[in-house]
Simulated scan of single mutants.
Amino acid sequence: MRRTLLACSLVLLTSLACAAELPETDWLSLMPPADRKALEDMPEITHNGPEANGTFTNKGGLKQSDKGLPKVMYSTKTVAALNGKALRLGGYPVPLENDAKGRVTEFFLVPYPGACIHVPPPPPNQIVLVRYPKGIQIDDIYNPIWVSGTLKIETVSNEMADAAYAIDDAKVRPVEESDL
């Protein structure tokens, strides 16, 4: 009986270790259905501003500066069922704060690379503030990362961006070739 319990315990622990990483959450699931529909129905957005020529003049960072965009591009509407849910998102970092060793301890996670220079940036409900006290060395913002943690609905607004979600005490790691 004792051996059976021990064997079952080992199988359970092995299963938990293999399943330790949460399944990937799709970015669009962070948007309420009405916002997803509005995004799908949105007209083509041109990138004919000065940024398209390599001249970045938007002082607002990730904040929307084109007031003529559809309302969905400014949406802070969230999905209540995700509040307090443990999840894993793949995305790209926009560094905000570093520690004394130069590791990034706070950043915005966005769904596509270069969101800080693209026009338009993602809506606030597609931007997650990540607080990662341990810090991570980020050499290239175009390299994707995984962020795991408990998502919470939290409106964050600073000079760089508006975000509708946050993750505190996240687990962060680079996306590796084996993940693809």
Rank of each mutant, 00 (worst) to 15 (best):
P93Q: 15
Y112R: 08
D66K: 15
A170T: 06
D35E: 08
E51H: 04
R36V: 05
E97C: 06
T14G: 15
P174N: 12
K59F: 06
V104C: 06
W146F: 15
L96M: 07
A7H: 11
V119N: 05
F107T: 05
Y112A: 04
G90A: 15
R3L: 14
M160Y: 07
A164I: 06
A38E: 04
G91I: 07
L180N: 09
E40Y: 04
A161Q: 14
M31F: 08
G61A: 11
E176P: 00
A100V: 10
Y165M: 06
M42Y: 01
A170E: 02
A7Y: 03
R88T: 04
L13T: 13
A100K: 12
L12E: 01
P43H: 05
M1P: 11
Y74K: 12
T46R: 12
G60E: 07
G54P: 00
E154L: 11
A38G: 06
A164C: 00
L82V: 03
A86K: 15
K37R: 13
K152W: 02
T25H: 14
A164P: 07
A20I: 03
K152F: 08
K134R: 09
D41N: 03
T78M: 00
G84I: 07
K37S: 14
A166S: 02
L10T: 05
D139V: 07
T25M: 13
T76F: 05
P93L: 14
V79E: 08
E44W: 05
P50E: 11
I138K: 04
K37T: 10
R2S: 14
E21A: 12
P33M: 12
L39T: 04
R88Q: 05
V130D: 11
V110A: 15
N48D: 11
N125D: 13
F107M: 02
V175C: 00
A161I: 09
K59M: 11
M1N: 12
K152E: 10
G90K: 15
S157Q: 11
G49V: 07
I145G: 05
A52T: 00
P23A: 09
P133G: 03
P174L: 02
E40M: 01
D169W: 14
L89D: 08
T105K: 03
P120V: 02
V79G: 00
L109R: 01
I141W: 05
T4Y: 08
T14I: 09
C116I: 13
G68A: 03
A86M: 02
K101I: 07
P120T: 08
T55D: 08
Q126F: 03
